[in-house]
C-alpha cells in the first residue's frame, strides 16, 4: 500500500486514561482491565509499527518465491515482429503481448498475438494480456463479461513455456470492482505456482491502497506515458526515489524513449515502442546498468 496509515498515539492515550481514571480499587476487575488494556496497547503498538494491509513482496512472502524464478530484467515484446535471439536467457526474460482484449458494451473481443516472437530456448516467458476499453462504447462490466474475460486470460497460462501471466489494464476508478473480480477469477484458474502480475499506474503506488489486497504476486508501476501523473511522478524520480507503495517497490517498468532516473529495483521491465534490436537492447541495458 502506498501511504502508511500509522496508528495515532490516541491508543496510548486511551490506555493511559484507562489507567489514570481507574480510581476505584474494585480489585476483582482490576486485573482483567489491566490485562485487556495491555493487550490493546500491545496490539496498537504493533499496528503502529506494522505495514498495514499491504501485500509485502519482500523476502519470505510466497509471491517472492514464485517470482524468484524470473530474471531481473524483462523485455516487453509488444504486437510487432520481435526477434530476440540476441538475449541471454539466463539474465533476460520476455513478457510478450499474447492477447489483446477489447471490452465494448457487452462484448469481449479477444485478438491473439499476430506477430512473430523469436526467443532463445530457455527464455523465461511471461504472457501478457492487455485489456482495452473505449470511451465511445464503455463496457457494461457485468459478471458475464468478467467471466468471459477471465477465461481468455487464464488460457494464456497454458501456452508453452510460459512462466507467468501478466495483465495490463489501466482500470479507471469505476472499473476497479470489475478488475478485482477478474483477478480473483484468473487467480483461481491459473496453477497455484504460476505468478500473476499486473502493470500498475503510478498513482496506484502512491496514496492509493487498492492494490493492497489484490490476489497478485507483482505490480509493475509503469514510469512512462504518465499522462496527468507525469509532473508528480517525475518529481519523485528525479530525486532518485521509488514510488512509495509497498506493492510497487520491487519492480518497475520503463520505456526506451523516456529515460528516467530510477532507484534500483529487483525486476525491471523495459518497453520499446519499436521492435527490439541488439543495438537498442545494449543501449538500454547500459542506461539502467542491468
Amino acid at each position: 500500500m502506498s501511504s502508511d496509515f500509522v496508528m495515532s498515539s490516541s491508543w496510548c492515550t486511551l490506555l493511559a486514561r484507562q489507567l489514570i481514571f481507574m480510581k476505584t480499587p474494585n480489585n476483582k476487575f482490576l486485573v482483567p482491565v489491566v490485562l485487556s488494556s495491555m493487550v490493546v496497547a500491545i496490539s496498537a503498538f504493533r499496528a503502529k509499527e506494522a505495514v498495514p494491509t499491504t501485500s509485502d513482496f519482500s523476502g519470505a512472502h510466497p509471491s517472492a518465491a514464485k517470482l524468484s524464478k524470473l530474471p531481473g530484467t524483462i523485455l516487453w515484446a509488444w504486437e510487432r515482429p520481435e526477434k530476440l535471439n540476441f538475449v541471454d536467457p539466463t539474465r533476460i526474460g520476455v513478457a510478450f503481448l499474447a492477447k489483446t482484449i477489447s471490452l465494448r458494451g457487452a462484448k469481449v473481443v479477444a485478438r491473439p498475438r499476430l506477430q512473430s516472437l523469436n526467443v532463445p530456448d530457455g527464455t523465461k516467458l511471461i504472457a501478457v494480456a492487455r485489456i482495452e476499453t473505449n470511451r465511445r462504447d464503455l463496457p457494461n462490466l457485468t459478471k458475464a463479461q468478467m467471466e468471459a474475460t477471465a477465461v481468455e486470460i487464464a488460457s494464456l497460462g497454458q501456452l508453452p513455456n510460459v512462466s507467468a501471466v501478466q495483465i495490463d489494464f489501466d482500470a479507471t476508478l469505476s472499473e476497479r470492482d470489475f478488475y478485482r473480480a477478474l483477478l480473483d477469477s484468473v487467480r483461481d484458474e491459473l496453477p497455484v505456482e504460476m505468478p500473476l502480475s499486473i502493470t500498475a499506474l503510478a498513482s496506484w503506488c502512491e496514496g492509493d491502497s487498492w492494490l493492497s489486497d489484490l490476489p497478485i504476486d507483482e505490480a509493475v508501476p509503469m514510469l512512462f506515458r504518465l499522462g496527468v501523473e507525469k509532473r508528480r511522478v517525475s518529481s519523485r524520480l528525479r530525486l532518485g526515489e521509488k514510488l512509495p507503495g509497498h506493492a510497487c517497490r520491487d519492480s518497475a517498468g520503463v520505456s526506451t524513449d523516456e529515460p528516467v532516473k530510477l532507484a534500483s529495483v529487483q525486476r525491471l521491465y523495459i518497453f520499446n515502442p519499436t521492435s527490439w534490436s541488439s543495438v537498442s537492447f545494449e543501449a538500454v541495458m547500459e542506461d539502467y546498468q542491468r
Binding site: W78, D170, S203, R225, E229, T274
Partner: peptide
C-alpha cells in the same frame, strides 16, 4: 488488414487528461 492494419504499438498508461 491482418498483417498491416495499424495496431497500437504502445502502452497507453495514463490516466490521461
Amino acid at each position: 488488414a491482418v498483417c498491416l492494419f495499424p495496431v497500437p504499438t504502445s502502452f497507453a498508461c495514463g490516466p490521461f487528461q
